[in-house]
Design a protein around this nucleic acid. Structure first.
Lengths: 358, 358
DNA sequence: CTGAAAGCGCTTACAG
DNA sequence: CTGAAAGCGCTTACAG
């Protein structure tokens, strides 16, 4: 039997009052406004008083109260990161990029998973604004499809930045990878290895990336005068399980494809699993390619040839862009597209070459 | 050339004043205190006035300003989630559990990745308290090792809950999985399949789970009178790459183990990759077992036999526990241990049975 | 370069 | 069951 734990001070009396801006001001012999100027790096303060104030801040261990600052300035200094339905590895990397950028700029980050298509969830997002919890938003796909919400935010002049959105006109900025080119390059890689019958697994159609990757695939086929065969296209949803289902369909065809290009690494991992189960050697009997270059791409066997999408950098750019807007700085261009990179690993090889196995 | 985007209202003049508690009070003809009571669900208000206030809240679209509330109440209603160095899949699940619980209870969650061993990062955590950003903390391993920090928090009476900590005495509560039993059961599963030469890959020694899993493994061997062979133990760090390194060492032995039990799924995936590379069939020639049951366990081939650790439920329990403490409620026991479950998939099978392949 | 006053929108503590 | 007063700890807007 352990002792009961409780914090009787909580909810009854208040904690001993901590050091405030008044204490610092009194200690130095200046007004609180001067202390405020120093802690906010207002350049107008003289070096002499700045030094004295800083010394007092250190000596007294003064830390500004963020709630007071937020209330008085009517700003939260917090960025809301809104996401739904995306792969966790993707979200994780976005989160890291946004959070690190926010920290550097003195902002906080609030993660807000939700189904942005549902009107209750849209209300919830507007509520974050009304509560003054958040100054602006970053939307990851497919949250950028919540058109009514985005219009409402624009009307209220709440800045936001979208990642790889579907709608790319209009004033609000976005950051994207060059999905079309990435898919084009991967397809060309497969074609150069001699593949002509290439299966393609599409991603969730709510994401613009799904369409751009398919378009890049088609364009590369066309550039190499390979006829497009709709029977080789399967509709997935970016999840591993859909990769399994689509791979079963593709590998059941006669003749079957010599390569499968999945629109992300999770689905490509599903293709690998099915191929292994069917006793198909990779890449000797089948080449498999993914997209994104998330950690999973290296954790399956054989390691996936994929297109590296700079998710972290995209997130950093989006956060920087948003914070510039929040600071009232203007932004020249609202369209940032980052390049992708072909990463060749062990899951792709020349057509019908038994040597290429492991 | 796109038009420049800026929000000139930001940083210059203030937004039009939104609806406040005064507006609601005036509209109903009561004091602001009464409105405050209603929105905080104080049961003392009469049903009649409560209804009138609620109607006005809806009609005017009133949303309380959280900064004002936090400032006046000297509380943030925010839980800090501190983590470092753990597997992303683990953190992701913890995050979901904590966030969903916080939302239900009207709390926010602040994620705070840091190296809790470094003293600057410990200062940063104390700063969150001083800034009134956070009312309490949840520490995931190995952050629970920041002993000096935890003592400081206890001295300041800041509640915190640890997940699977190393130090388990003392008053501050924690939640853990029964790692010892999980490892015991997995080892027994392998022994029942006829395995006697079982390699074991240990996790990061900063995590208590690493030691408990090893102890469970040893105990099961002993219970079945299988002599413990230290040469079969490899030191990993929970990352995929360490699984690869340790598997190379184990599979280079003569005679080599017939089974490898890795202390988590990421390292088990590394074992699979090495085995595939060496042309070792799984589970015909080698059984491979993991721990945790993260998504990766189903995304590799063959799907991993593993021990399901209820990470989500652990996170939910920890958050509930912390919020109870934050509300000033007492907690009878400070020790919560959740059971694990053996999940048998395709990566384990009887010793030397070629039929069990795929 | 510095400061006094007012106010941000709530809750606390107390009274009735 | 309800309310008037004071205060939480900052920033804004203005003045000098």
């Amino acid at each position: 039997m352990l002792t009961a734990l409780s914090y009787p001070h909580i909810g009854r009396t208040l904690d001993p009052v901590s050091v405030t801006i008044f204490d610092v001001a009194r200690h130095v012999g200046v007004s609180i406004k001067t202390v405020s100027r120093v802690i906010n790096n207002d350049p107008v303060v003289s070096e002499d008083t700045r030094a004295k104030v800083m010394a007092a801040v250190r000596e007294l261990g003064y830390v500004p109260n963020v709630s007071a600052r937020r209330l008085a300035s009517r700003r939260s200094y917090v960025v809301g990161l809104v996401f739904h339905n995306a792969t966790w590895a993707y979200i994780t990397e976005v989160q890291q990029g946004v959070l690190e950028t926010c920290r550097k700029e003195g902002y906080g980050m609030l993660i807000h998973p939700c189904n942005a298509k549902k009107s209750e969830d849209q209300q919830e997002i507007l509520r974050l604004v009304a509560q003054q919890q958040v100054d602006g938003f970053i939307f990851t796909p497919p949250c950028d499809n919540a058109v009514a919400l985005l219009e409402e935010l624009e009307a209220r002049r709440i800045p936001f930045v979208r990642l790889t959105p579907c709608v790319r006109q209009g004033p609000s900025p976005f950051v994207a990878a060059d999905d079309w080119r990435g898919a084009y390059e991967m397809t060309e890689h497969l074609i150069n290895l001699g593949h002509r019958r290439i299966g393609f697994i599409m991603g969730n159609p709510d994401h613009q990336a799904s369409h751009d990757r398919l378009a890049g695939f088609k364009a590369a086929l066309e550039a190499h005068r390979i006829p497009f065969n709709p029977a080789l296209i399967q509709q997935g949803d970016f999840q591993f399980e859909s990769g399994v289902t689509c791979a079963r369909a593709l590998l059941g065809m006669e003749p079957r494809p010599t390569a499968i290009f999945a629109s992300n690494d999770d689905m490509a991992a599903g293709v690998l699993a099915v191929a292994h189960q069917m006793g198909i050697s990779i890449p000797a009997d089948l080449s498999v390619a993914g997209f994104d270059d998330v950690p999973l791409a290296r954790q399956v066997w054989p390691a996936l040839t994929t297109i590296r999408q700079p998710i972290y950098e995209i997130a950093v750019s989006a956060a920087q862009l948003l914070i510039r807007l929040l600071k009232g700085e203007s932004v020249e261009t609202s369209f940032y597209e980052l390049p992708t990179t072909l990463i060749v690993r062990e899951s792709t090889g020349p057509v019908g070459d038994p040597e290429s196995l492991g």
